[in-house]
Simulated assay, not measured.
Amino acid sequence: MVKKLLLSLCILAPALAVHAQRPDAAGHTTLRKAQDTLQRLSYEIFNGKGDAAREKATEQFIPTLVRALKTTYSFRFPFDSLKTVSIQYPQDSSFRIFTWALERETGFYRHYGAIQMNTRDGKLQLFPLFDVSDFITNTDTVTSNKAWYGCLYYAVSQRHYFNQEYYTLFGWDANNPRSQKKIVEMLTFKNGAPVFGGAYFSYAEDSVPGPVRNRFIIEYKKESTATLNYNKELDMIVYDHLISETNEPAKKFTYVSDMDYEGFKWKAGKWVHINKIFHDAIPLGKGAPVPMPLDQKKKSMMNPKSAEDLEPKGKPRQ
């Protein structure tokens, strides 16, 4: 039943950096064989009967993936047969990030992942991601790959500011039987190592200015849908304004969209909060992306997006 409530994930694979070479014939054969094994194991992680079967598949999946990625120039191999694993690339293809989820019989989730760097010599540089979200009491914090706020990433937006690259990650957490979450956070690299979060979400321009945040999270009703993504046409992050349908704001599992939209605009190295994106007079061709209810029975792990996210980019739903 829980899987029917999960949203589907679109795996992106943009053009790779010019300096990366392809694996040779032997390497390609090795990767194809590994992909077949990984495909079987990823299916078991998602569909295995009981926690023990899914955990066993996960324990086998991780070393199999690492061995495959040790193949020289494996970065150029897309692993596009892994339908329950998200593989996201930034615009510059300097890295790719693998994420996947393990559903427990209780309806709670644990996430797994890794960042593979695009190295010039084709050798593996990998940062495993360790999900500690169940133990993070303060979500507004900066973390490393060893203390990762686990989720399934479904989009990456890249920005350049003062000789540094900033990668905004958009993630989804199926969370628990009552609610789900969407997350946006900044990924940067310090001394070559990944850093998740940072003081990049500013509320300085609000009518009542609020403190800057290191990470932005929305939590809402399990059966509901909510937008949180980068809108290329508006050149900003757009998300649903949420309210409690039972007037119990302390209970996040009662939150649903009220059909209004907030967002963040990139200014001087920060995402600055915009309290209201669409007003009564909507400019021609800039219609609000009105969400369409999705058939819950057709949802799957492969697209954590609401209806407007599935529209062609640059063409918000009218």
Rank of each mutant, 00 (worst) to 15 (best):
P128Q: 03
P194K: 03
I115E: 00
N214H: 06
R159C: 00
F162C: 11
K221R: 15
K221H: 10
A155T: 01
V195K: 03
T168A: 12
K181Y: 04
Y112S: 09
L129D: 00
S224T: 15
K181N: 07
L169P: 00
L102Q: 05
T188S: 02
Q158D: 03
H111P: 02
P209Y: 09
Y112A: 07
A155S: 10
H160R: 14
Q180I: 08
Y149I: 10
I183M: 01
T99I: 06
Q158K: 05
L187D: 01
S157H: 14
F162G: 08
R104E: 11
P211H: 06
Y200L: 08
T225M: 15
E223W: 11
R96E: 03
V184Y: 02
N118S: 11
D140H: 08
T168S: 06
S144L: 08
V156T: 05
E185H: 01
F98A: 02
V184I: 04
T168N: 09
L102T: 03
F127W: 02
K221Q: 03
G192F: 07
K190H: 05
Q116R: 00
R96T: 01
F162N: 09
L124C: 00
R178W: 15
Y161K: 13
A155W: 01
Y112L: 08
D121F: 12
Q125K: 12
K181Q: 08
S94V: 07
W172C: 12
T139C: 07
S179I: 03
V208C: 05
T227M: 07
L169M: 13
H160A: 15
N191F: 03
S202I: 13
K123V: 09
L152M: 13
R215G: 04
N214M: 08
A193V: 10
L129A: 05
T143D: 05
F201W: 11
N176T: 15
A147R: 08
R120P: 05
G197R: 03
F95H: 07
T106D: 14
R120I: 12
R120Y: 15
P211V: 12
K146P: 08
A193Q: 09
E205N: 14
A174T: 02
E105N: 13
R120N: 11
F216H: 13
Q164Y: 07
D173R: 07
S94A: 13
A114G: 09
T141I: 15
N163S: 08
E185F: 00
S94E: 08
V208H: 10
G192C: 09
T99F: 07
T119G: 06
I97R: 00
T139L: 11
A147S: 10
M117C: 11
N175K: 05
Y203H: 14
V195M: 09
F98M: 04
K190W: 04
T137P: 01
N176Y: 04
S157C: 13
F130K: 05
I217R: 01
T119P: 12
C151Q: 13
K181A: 03
K222P: 09
E165T: 10
F98R: 03
N118L: 06
V208L: 09
N138D: 13
Y161C: 10
E185T: 02
L124V: 00
K190T: 05
P211M: 11
I136A: 05
A226N: 11
R120V: 09
I136P: 06
T119K: 14
E103V: 06
H111W: 04
N138H: 14
Q164A: 11
F201T: 10
F127Y: 07
H160T: 15
P177D: 05
V195C: 02
E103K: 02
G210I: 06
S144W: 04
E205T: 13
Q164H: 14
I218E: 00
R215N: 11
